Simulated assay, not measured.
Amino acid sequence: MKPLTWAIIGPGAIAHQFAAAQGALGRQIYAVGARNRQKGEAFAQRYGIERVFDDIPQLLADPQVEAVYIATPHASHFSWMKQALEQGKHLLVEKAITVSSDELNEINRLAAEKQLIVAEAMTLFHMPLFRQLKQLLDSGRLGKLKMIQVSFGTLKEDDPTNRFFNPELAGGALLDIGTYALSFARFFLSEQPDQLFTTVSKFSTGVDEQCGILLQNSHNEMATISLAFRAKMPKRGIVACEKGFITVDDFPRAQQAQLSWTDGSTETIRAGETDRALQYEILALEEYAANGTNPLHYLTNDVVALMTAIRQRWGIRFPFES
Rank of each mutant, 00 (worst) to 15 (best):
A71S: 14
H74V: 01
H74D: 03
A75M: 12
S76G: 04
H77Y: 05
H77N: 11
H77M: 11
F78P: 04
S79F: 07
W80P: 00
W80H: 15
W80A: 12
W80T: 10
M81C: 10
M81I: 07
M81T: 05
M81F: 03
K82S: 10
K82F: 14
K82I: 12
Q83I: 05
A84L: 04
A84R: 12
A84M: 05
L85V: 10
E86C: 04
E86M: 01
E86F: 01
Q87E: 06
Q87W: 02
G88I: 06
G88P: 03
H90V: 04
L92I: 06
V93T: 09
K95T: 01
K95C: 02
I97L: 15
T98G: 06
T98H: 07
T98I: 03
V99K: 15
V99P: 01
S100H: 08
S100K: 07
S100Q: 05
S100G: 05
S101A: 07
S101P: 00
D102I: 14
E103G: 02
L104N: 14
N105M: 01
I107S: 00
N108V: 12
R109N: 02
R109P: 01
R109S: 05
R109E: 07
L110R: 01
A111I: 10
Q115H: 11
L116W: 04
V118Q: 00
V118C: 12
V118P: 03
E120D: 13
E120C: 07
A121T: 01
M122D: 01
T123H: 05
L124T: 05
L124F: 13
L124Y: 13
F125Y: 13
F125C: 11
F125V: 00
H126M: 12
M127S: 06
P128F: 04
L129D: 10
F130V: 05
F130K: 09
F130N: 00
R131Q: 14
Q132K: 15
L133F: 07
L133H: 03
K134F: 00
K134E: 00
Q135S: 10
L137Y: 08
L137T: 02
L137C: 03
D138H: 14
S139P: 05
G140E: 08
R141T: 08
R141V: 11
G143W: 03
L145H: 08
L145W: 04
K146N: 06
M147G: 01
V150K: 10
S151N: 09
S151A: 03
S151E: 13
S151C: 10
S151V: 07
G153H: 15
T154A: 12
L155F: 13
L155A: 07
K156Y: 12
K156N: 09
E157Y: 13
D158W: 14
